[in-house]
Design a protein around this nucleic acid. Structure first.
Lengths: 148, 148
DNA sequence: AATATAATTGCATAATTATGCATTATTGTT
DNA sequence: AACAATAATGCATAATTATGCAATTATATT
């Protein structure tokens, strides 16, 4: 089990359950066949920017600026999770299956490309802001090559 | 020091500082002349629906449906914190000083009036949804009487 | 392939937060 | 005012989360 798959599962579980502790989350993961310690979950949740309140863990709508990874690093995530790509003015809109958008959004956050100014990701949709309509078209084409 | 004033201060502090623990929050409150225990802060934060993540406590944009208090209970909060009131179609828009909107929003949550369907509150603005334009106007007028 | 570098994870435990119970303060009623 | 009922608070401590360190695994470089 890869870390990224575990993270995806965490997002999915938290989107569909009231989770009040990391031990509980560990149990839920275990019932999906994933075994991890509370320690690792503490770190996963921090990396995923998942918040905790009185009604359990919540995943925030994420607004992000670009980070520092290489574009190649994001190719596998896009090819694995993105099911639809479309430019929309200076935006690129990506669609995923429910619960996967956050993960793609987070990975995008760590990519540093001039064409990506930032992104907002919900449950199954990611908006990527680019500097121009041309950039949005170019980025859109690039992504489309990856999922073909 | 009343509880509601402390809560207001908590919102203000969290909006302007990176707060990583309730002890730290207690210190910040102390420097404002407010002395409380971690116990009380744990409860305050829960009541305010303040979340904690890896970068400290955060206050969420709040979406709420109506609760169960009486309208009279909200009068003092509105009269104390709201500085501007205006209907806008079927909405009533309230403005407060920075950091106070959440508090008013939370108090509104606990009011049960047919004219109030729900509210969304940010940092200094509250949108109150009402069933109709007429309701928005009526509610707006009522609130205006309170702040006069 | 061998070595170096970085990433991931767990253990033990420190740090932080939540809660049962008792106490005090506040609000409402007769 | 006296009494009752409700809310607010703190203490002690249980429950939960974060982290230093060491070990392991994965990735990159020569």
């Amino acid at each position: 089990m890869k870390k990224i798959q575990r993270k995806t599962l965490i997002i999915d579980i938290i989107n569909h359950n009231q989770v009040f502790s990391q031990e509980q989350l560990a149990s839920l993961l275990l019932s999906e066949g994933v075994e991890v310690t509370q320690t690792t979950l503490s770190r996963d949740l921090a990396e995923l920017n998942i918040l905790k309140g009185s009604s359990g863990y919540v995943i925030q709508e994420q607004v992000a600026i670009t980070g520092s990874k290489n574009l190649n690093d994001i190719e596998k995530v896009i090819s694995q999770y993105v099911v639809y790509i479309s430019p929309a003015a200076s935006l690129v809109v990506l669609k995923t299956n429910p619960g996967h958008a956050q993960l793609v959004g987070f990975e995008l956050d760590s990519v540093k490309v001039n064409e990506i100014v930032g992104n907002v990701s919900g449950d199954d949709t990611i908006f990527i802001a680019t500097p121009s309509i041309q950039d949005a078209l170019a980025l859109s084409e690039l992504f489309k090559q990856w999922i073909h």
